[in-house]
Design a protein around this nucleic acid. Structure first.
Length: 413
RNA sequence: CGGGGCGUAGUGUAGUAGCAGCACGAGUCUUUCGGGAAGAUUUAGCCCGAGUGCAAAUCUCGGCGCCCCGACCA
């Protein structure tokens, strides 16, 4: 992509009312735009990152058998009355001109459970794993911290249906592993910890995936021996010690909840009378699990975890581009070499943002490149041309390397 | 929902009753081009409504909106 053609512009200063790092950097760099509190537009650069995250999640959920669907956002009142959640405080409710009532989906158990029930009769039809990547609407009283807590946000929600609890348990463990792969690939691996949280009425605990960062709105008690977090809601119940090893020296850390998994068991399948016939022809209730990841929050968390005073530092797999090619100077030689490298990189399938802009000083280009945070910066200028080279610098490092133009193809492989 | 802060141009800021100013950005031209260029020139603003007053960005009331702390977040 040519930087001269991107319709957004980079702001030298952050809007003064944004204090959170993710909001400041993402807005300044033109990755997102705020429509109102907790509601954001994703702009070209931000959407590239968003799609990378989306694809990582899709791949890992497909790997554990997930089948992707797209459920409606507009829901009828009746289904929510059935589970007693019509009055849920986070739900947006609306009426049409005939005074019929609807809601905007803040979660999808009420939709997916009767849906899957339609197709499942026998134990042979189970298990079923369905997921979607789609908008959720939640009437948050206090949206905050940029992308970290939204009123409208995209979530990956996976629902699993099983013949018995044992099968639910084993799938639940698979999801844990898939989640860790997702966070690893998003560059949050070493900072993300499985955390025990309250399970509600249907199971003792649920699990959260908490990423340690100073911007966190949660606090977890971390057992460094087991790499297990304990949510503060339940730390009293656990007598302030690690339930795995009994360690009492827990570290209190600020963290962001990037994922959450629940064993719902029969909580919703019972309400919708979702049963199947087992091998003996006996009717049994279906067991259910649900598993969520908020994509925007994940993107915001990556920014919170990877930045410096100059800007964002995207982990390789979620970066909007692999290479930021910068042209300095307007001579024909520099221009044509930069153009050629731009074309060559694209031919090789390397995603490249090409700063072809004129009338920008080198300093501005570097400063903006640092803000955008693409992993590898490549500079073509009079200086490098004389040396038959281009200059390479990783966003994470200060060291600058000169690479001979002829060696470029090998270097990039 | 409780508490606090705030709302002046695209962004940042000055102006607290008397001509709405500055910087950056953006446009045009020229010169520049390795860490946020120079000159010339142009552009653009008091969140909304009501009130007080000769006069309101400024005071009063109401509304809307944003940020932060807390509560809430199966």
């Amino acid at each position: 992509m040519r930087q001269s053609e991107i319709f957004t512009k980079i702001l030298r200063e952050a809007p003064k009312d944004e204090l959170s790092i993710n909001a400041q950097l993402l807005i300044r760099a033109g990755f997102v735009d705020k429509l109102m509190a907790g509601v954001y537009s994703y702009l070209p650069l931000g959407l590239l990152v968003f799609k990378k995250i989306e694809n990582i999640i899709r791949e890992e959920i497909n790997n554990i058998g997930g089948q992707e669907v797209l459920l409606p956002v507009l829901h009828p009142k009746a289904l929510w009355e059935k589970t007693g959640r019509w009055q849920h405080e986070e739900m947006f409710r609306l009426k049409n001109r005939e005074e019929k009532e609807f809601s905007l989906g803040w979660t999808h158990e009420e939709i997916v459970t009767p849906l899957v029930k339609n197709f499942v009769n026998s134990y042979k039809d189970l298990p079923v794993y369905v997921y979607q990547i789609q908008d959720k609407f939640r009437d948050e009283l206090r949206s905050k911290s940029g992308l970290l807590r939204g009123r409208e946000f995209v979530m990956k929600d996976l629902y699993s249906f099983h013949a018995d609890e044992k099968d639910l348990d084993s799938y639940y463990e698979k999801v844990k592993i898939a989640y860790f792969k997702i966070f690893e690939r998003c560059g949050l691996g070493k900072d993300t910890f499985l955390t025990l949280a309250s399970g509600g009425t249907f199971s003792k605990y649920s699990h959260e995936f908490q990423t340690i960062t100073p911007a966190g709105e949660d606090e977890i008690y971390l057992c460094p021996k087991c790499n297990l977090g304990i949510n503060k809601e339940i730390i009293q119940e656990e007598k302030n010690q690690c339930p795995e090893c009994g360690n009492k020296k827990l570290e209190i850390r600020k963290s962001i909840e990037v994922g959450n998994i629940f064993k719902l068991k029969d909580k919703y399948t019972k309400v919708f009378d979702f049963k199947f016939k087992d091998k003996e022809g006996q009717e049994k209730i279906v067991m259910m699990g649900c598993y969520g990841i908020g994509l925007g929050r994940l993107m915001g968390t990556i920014v919170e975890a990877h930045n410096d005073t100059r800007g964002m530092i995207w982990p390789e797999e979620v970066a909007p581009f692999k290479v930021h090619l910068i042209k300095i100077g307007e001579s024909l030689e520099v221009k044509s070499l930069a153009e050629k490298i731009y074309q060559d990189l694209q031919k090789q399938g390397i995603e490249v943002l090409y700063d072809d802009r004129e009338n920008k000083t080198a300093g501005e280009k570097f400063a903006e490149a640092d803000l955008i945070g693409i992993p590898l910066r490549m500079v073509v200028s009079e200086k490098t041309l004389k040396l038959d080279s281009v200059e390479m610098k990783k966003r994470t490092e200060e060291e600058i390397k000169l690479i001979k133009i002829n060696d470029l193809p090998q270097f990039l492989n």
